[in-house]
């Protein structure tokens, strides 16, 4: 009886109209953009980190939750995006902020190039295949002097710029990234490509039988998610001014993405927002507990998976029938 009631509720999800959602995103972005008026540099730095980590998680969610591609190697693109920006800026003296689109294109292009290879692998093999490529990239970068080898490199161009301005610009880049990963992804999911992505995720064979080119749909999903991930990586490392292969190509990035998406709810835009908040709260509370911290994070993720496989937002949505970013196409 209870199950019946819940399922009837779930079939009538209340969701605001797309215009309202986008307007809400706009207001939230404006408030965030104006926040430097009231906050100091330390706060801004924390918000930059929160927003970029949120962007990492949201791109992983786009892959796993919507494109049906589980990748354990997305740190590859964090590293590629960041290295692309650092190397070009240091070599040419170009303003790194203008290089952000280049970092996006470079990461998306790298994803496009490896697609023919990694798409031959499925499921766990795909997940590990990309991970292996990330390791290869880390080892390669660590051995090349022109890439700074293991000790990495510092961003030269921003040294001579006005520090307050650089801090603000980094902050606004992070806010823009946050907007792209909520409103932008929301628009993407309501588009034709969004419909093709979820159809392929749900049933590959039926998607092909309905006229969807499965390979190219996955390709676009992978390239977009990886490109934005690389963009976020570039933005993150630009804000800390220093980059080294061990940190940029660190598999722990994927662990964080996984944790956030699993806790918050995979396959929803709201999930990673909630998950990011929980991750940073836990990190704050458990600071200084050493390895116990990682074990507690792991335990929290396992508990969530057992209790609510669709994460906290999945449970909220089912219980109360609310949805904010609904890509659902209604019949009337």
């Amino acid at each position: 009886m209870t199950a019946l009631r819940i399922s009837r509720k779930a079939s009538r999800l209340r969701a605001p109209s797309p215009k309202l959602v986008l307007a809400g995103c706009g207001i939230a972005a404006l408030i965030l953009a104006a926040a430097p008026l009231a906050l100091d540099v330390g706060d801004l730095r924390l918000i930059i980190e929160i927003l970029t980590v949120f962007a990492f998680a949201q791109t992983w969610n786009l892959l796993a939750g919507y494109a049906g591609l589980m990748s354990f190697g997305q740190h590859l693109f964090i590293g590629l995006g960041a290295y692309c920006l650092f190397v070009i800026s240091n070599r040419t003296g170009a303003n790194p902020f203008y290089l952000l689109p280049v970092a996006f294109l470079f990461s998306a292009g790298a994803a496009a190039l490896i697609s023919p290879m990694v798409f031959r692998l499925r499921h766990a093999y795909f997940a590990i295949g990309v991970w292996v490529l990330a390791e290869v990239a880390r080892l390669y970068v660590s051995q090349e002097d022109w890439l700074g080898s293991t000790s990495g490199m510092a961003l030269v161009a921003t040294r001579d710029m006005d520090h307050t301005w650089v801090a603000l610009a980094n902050y606004w880049v992070a806010v823009a990234l946050g907007v792209v990963c909520t409103a932008g992804f929301y628009l993407l999911l309501t588009s034709r490509l969004g419909l093709a992505l979820v159809a392929v995720r749900d049933n590959e064979s039926a998607a092909a039988a309905s006229g969807i080119d499965v390979w190219w749909t996955r390709f676009y999903g992978f390239a977009i998610a990886s490109g934005v991930c690389g963009l976020a990586g570039a933005a993150y490392y630009m804000s800390v001014f220093h980059l080294e292969p061990g940190a940029a190509f660190d598999a722990n990035w994927v662990v964080v993405m996984l944790f956030i998406v699993i806790i918050g709810g995979v396959g929803t835009i709201e999930g990673p927002i909630l998950g990011t908040a929980i991750y940073f709260l836990l990190r704050g509370w458990l600071a200084g507990t050493g390895n116990l911290y990682l074990m507690l994070l792991g335990a929290a993720a396992v508990a969530t998976m057992l209790i609510s496989p669709k994460g906290i937002w999945g449970a909220v949505r089912r219980r109360y029938g609310i949805e904010i970013f609904s890509a659902r196409r209604l019949a009337d």
Binding site: D202, N203, I212, R328, R329
Partner: peptide, 13 residues
């Protein structure tokens, strides 16, 4: 079917 899509969305695909 596409299990996580509604009946309408299934046909819409």
């Amino acid at each position: 079917p596409f299990p996580d899509l509604s009946a309408f969305e299934n046909v819409l695909v």
